[in-house]
Design a protein around this nucleic acid. Sequence first.
DNA 1: AAGTACCCCTGCGTGC
DNA 2: TGCACGCAGGGGTACT
Length: 307
Amino acid sequence: MPELPEVETVRAGLASLITGATVRRVDVLRDSCVRLLPGGTAQFAGMLADARIASVARRGKFLWMPLLHAHEPEPAEALAAHLGMSGQFRVHEGAQAPQPHAHCRARLHLERDGRSLTLDFLDQRTFGYLHVEPLVPTADAQAGGAGSDLAAVPGSVAHIGRDALDPHLDVAAATRAWRRGSRGIKQVLLDQTLVSGIGNIYADEALWAARVHPERPASAVSLRQARELLDASRTVMSRALAQGGTSFDALYVNVNGESGYFSRSLEAYGRAGEPCSRCGRALRRASIGGRSTHWCATCQRRFSPRA
DNA sequence: AAGTACCCCTGCGTGC
DNA sequence: TGCACGCAGGGGTACT
């Protein structure tokens, strides 16, 4: 579930079910779902063996679970995960887990308070991955992300900016970074190194709400508009989160396999040809930067009338 | 720095 | 019915 609200829905679900659980066994059903370890899946399974999941954390669309090994005071490594386009986590409680789903790429057998749990990582399109890697300190010594107080993130997340809903996001620095350069503003919103968590759906929604054309050069976005875009991103993603995320089909579901309801609240994304709810003109759709983009040509001007 | 191309994959709906 | 094609919410790398 690709964007921030969907990943947060997964994070919260995982946190309630597997925090404090210990990994007992790992089955990797498709080797390529495990990334970046020279020792491959065997090393992956070995690094997880008997590790305790201290918490479930998230920054933007990146998830990780700090791991505690016996006699360690603080987690030094984490099980990191990215859902890519189609990744899912599913949790089953009880000793007999069902047959793995056809898209199940890895199954972790856990134990919590003497009870068995099964954590499946499903991924139809296989752009997602799992990875065990060291935690590195955050530059600002604040918590690495939502769900954990640890001032650390997995190494592969260090270059990712704090997300739009992170209380430690430096708003002034973020909006300054957004307004730098000549790229179109939509591409800038999608740049996860500046502000993370905003994906293709919520970028279109934020641009519609702030009345900014997706192709306006970032340098032509006023400070006020940049703040409006950040506010709009936060508002729309918070509302989506409250409804369990956006989903159009069974591909985007929470840890119980249920989908959210926010798709019916979208104003721009997926509504090409339908009337804009502000002005009534038909919404447009085009491919911008390789991503399908939806906007209202009347409300969202390429250049600001007075800026 | 920023733009471009291309890579990683599967499955669905559409039109011929 | 079959087949080719376009499309899908992500991100990384290499090159200009």
